[in-house]
Write a protein that binds this DNA or RNA. Structure first.
Length: 580
RNA sequence: GCCCCGAUAGUUCAGUGGAUAGAACGAGCGCCUCCUAAGCGCUAAACACAGGUUCGAUUCCUGUUCGGGGCGCCA
């Protein structure tokens, strides 16, 4: 038995040629039917048929029993040239398609679109602004922070693939009491390096806990910046830039790309805050409390609960809170006028983002759309910086690359060292990106070092390997893959057919994933596709095919599968090596 | 205490208002004179619990339990 691709065929905008004739045939048979009444399913097995039409909703409209209707439709409707037979099975009509003919259409569509195959173009002419990662500049990023970067980066790639014009922003949190404390400690250490920052940060926080006077100096630093002390500002800048550079080095290794770095410190003493405050005052939502803080009462803006009702903008000493600067940053992003304003945030920011949204909207500023993600947990519990129980991205990448390097050097000893290293790095990146991205953002990712390093089974390297096998076939063929010809295209085995169906589903996956801003769907689709290809690979010899028509058809299938896999991998930010 | 997420094989993840709930890892058994064994085939194994809506619920609703996150001067 071969693996079956059980997804229904593509419908709607990305419909392939064979879908419409079937709908038209049904509507011609019964003019009272509308296109929406006709749904498509995958039958439980390929033996029953290639496409199933459930009769439930049509039967309801016609006031007939579904099974009776199925009999009638299977017997009487002429489905056209793409359908070779129709059979009723209970409440379903199962159609068998003309595989050669449909296979030709699918393959031709893929090869024609090539690197664009699967993109629906729903984003053409629309601009997206996305902000993600925005890690506090205080340590080398661990996989939890990386989840934000990987999700944001992949959503960006997904939307670009759909035709959106996307600009990526990274908010540099170069302000705040904790940065102040870090600066104080860093000052004591001559020439602090990126790798020492985390220790300094931990030290700073510990000292602040034990020593109120030291803690107070953190606030004092902030107040001085707000008062315009350029010397302190310079000190902050030195530490945060050192940190940012170190972090970006790791993020770039992952393939994350950013267009703009927006600094929080640019929003200190922004005069536009007065405009927002005025809007809040007009709604009776802003007051000064008994201790002199400026506080927003969100219940005046429609917030329903007591918890989280109050939102502090300024401390009693007049210095601004994080959210205060963030409001202005949000205003800036809003003013860039993108059609879609996105941000990727950890679920710990849910309440905060809700509060921000209420304030922004009260001031007439549309709040951004948020993609939330849950934390990454380790197989033995939560990550803990203090216990040293974190997986740093750079550590993971180093280990994974070392393993992959060893492997590829054994496999292909003659390749130049540069290429060895490049392949190893690509495999390492694919292992982490795939492991994290394949899980829906709302679920915790349980990260297990051992299985992430195994490269076996449902992993990024598995999909890359699948591509490497295809490339190997195409390399041995050594000529351009001929264009498909309708009369001679052959796809009569189950495994070829399963592969074709899997490829045909790609545009729908992309459209849905883009609409839901969910790359996990792309990752899981890719596994199905890779499995389908591997089934084909094992059952159908390509280069030793007996006749030329079959040889060409299979080469075309290989080329089409490679386009589909590479396009999908590209969305997840994963490159495919020529060999591995 | 209150609010928001989640719960599917031993484990990590998919999936669906309707035909037999899919993979992978792990376990057991097989497969490299054959386009890359980072692979393939076979076997065993799951919808947390209780109600409700429905012709039909693992899927929708409510409650319980468990796990994650949050709840005014952190960012």
């Amino acid at each position: 038995m071969i693996k079956e691709y059980r997804s229904p065929p593509v419908t709607g905008e990305n419909a392939l040629l064979y879908y419409e004739p079937i709908v038209n045939a049904l509507m011609a048979y019964d003019p009272s039917l509308a296109a929406e009444d006709i749904a498509f399913n995958a039958p439980p097995s390929l033996e029953m048929g290639d496409v199933a039409i459930p009769m439930f909703s049509i039967a309801k409209k016609r006031k007939t029993a579904p099974a009776v209707l199925a009999q009638e439709i299977a017997a009487k409707v002429n489905f056209g040239a793409y359908v070779s037979s129709a059979a009723a099975a209970g409440p379903y009509v199962n159609l068998k398609l003309d595989r050669n003919r449909v296979g030709y259409e699918i393959t031709r569509a893929v090869l024609k679109a090539g690197t664009q195959w699967g993109g629906g173009g729903t984003g053409k002419g629309k601009r997206v602004l996305i902000e993600h990662t925005s890690i506090n500049p205080n340590a080398s990023p661990h996989v939890g922070r990386g989840r934000c970067a990987m999700i944001g980066d992949s959503v960006t790639r997904l939307l670009r693939f759909e035709g959106y014009d996307v600009e990526v922003h990274y908010y540099v949190n170069d302000m705040g009491r904790q940065i102040g404390l870090l600066v104080l400690v860093a000052e004591e250490l001559e020439g602090i390096t990126f790798d020492e920052i985390l220790d300094a940060y931990v030290t700073a926080n510990k000292r602040a806990e034990e020593d109120p006077e030291f803690a107070a100096r953190g606030y004092e630093m902030l107040a001085r910046i707000e008062a315009g002390d350029s010397g302190i500002k310079e000190k902050f800048f030195r530490v945060t830039e050192l940190c940012l550079k170190g972090q970006l080095k790791v993020l770039q290794r992952l393939g994350a790309q950013y267009d703009f770095f927006d600094h929080e410190s640019a929003y200190v003493n922004d005069p536009r805050l007065a405009v927002i405050e005025e809007a809040l005052e007009k709604k009776g939502a802003l007051f000064t409390d008994e201790d002199g803080r400026r506080v927003v009462d969100l219940s005046r803006l429609g917030y329903p609960l007591e918890e989280g009702r109050y939102f502090v903008l300024r401390r009693a000493n007049g210095s601004s809170m994080y959210g205060c600067r963030d409001l202005l940053y949000s205003l800036d992003k809003h003013e860039r006028g993108a059609d879609v304003n996105l941000m990727v945030l950890g679920e710990d920011h849910k309440l905060y983002a809700q509060q921000m949204a209420l304030i922004l909207e009260a001031a007439g500023i549309a709040a951004p759309e948020v993609v939330y993600y849950s934390y990454i947990l380790l197989s033995d519990g939560k990550m803990s910086t203090r216990q040293g129980k974190v997986v740093l991205l750079s550590d993971f990448l180093d280990q994974a690359a070392a393993l992959a390097l060893q492997r590829v050097m054994e496999q292909f000893p003659d390749l130049p060292a540069d290429e060895h290293r490049q392949i190893a790095e690509q495999v390492a990146v694919s292992a982490i990106r795939f492991a994290v991205l394949r899980v829906k953002p709302t679920k915790n990712v349980i990260f297990d070092m051992e299985s992430a390093l195994s490269f076996q089974g449902d992993t990024g390297p598995y999909v890359q390997y699948c591509c490497a096998r295809i490339r190997s076939i195409l390399r041995k063929w050594g000529r351009p893959v001929p264009d498909p010809v309708p009369e001679t295209f052959i796809a009569d085995t189950d495994s070829e057919w399963a592969l074709l169906n899997a490829m045909a589903a790609f545009p729908k996956v992309i459209t849905e994933s883009a609409a839901q801003r969910n790359c996990a769907q792309v990752a899981n689709y890719m596994l199905d596709l890779a499995h389908a290809f591997t089934g084909f690979y094992h059952e159908c010899q390509v280069l030793s095919s007996q006749d030329e028509a079959r040889l060409h058809s299979r080469l075309q299938l290989c080329r089409a599968a490679l386009y589909t896999l590479s396009n999908a991998l590209g969305i997840l930010g994963i490159d495919t090596p020529e060999r591995m």
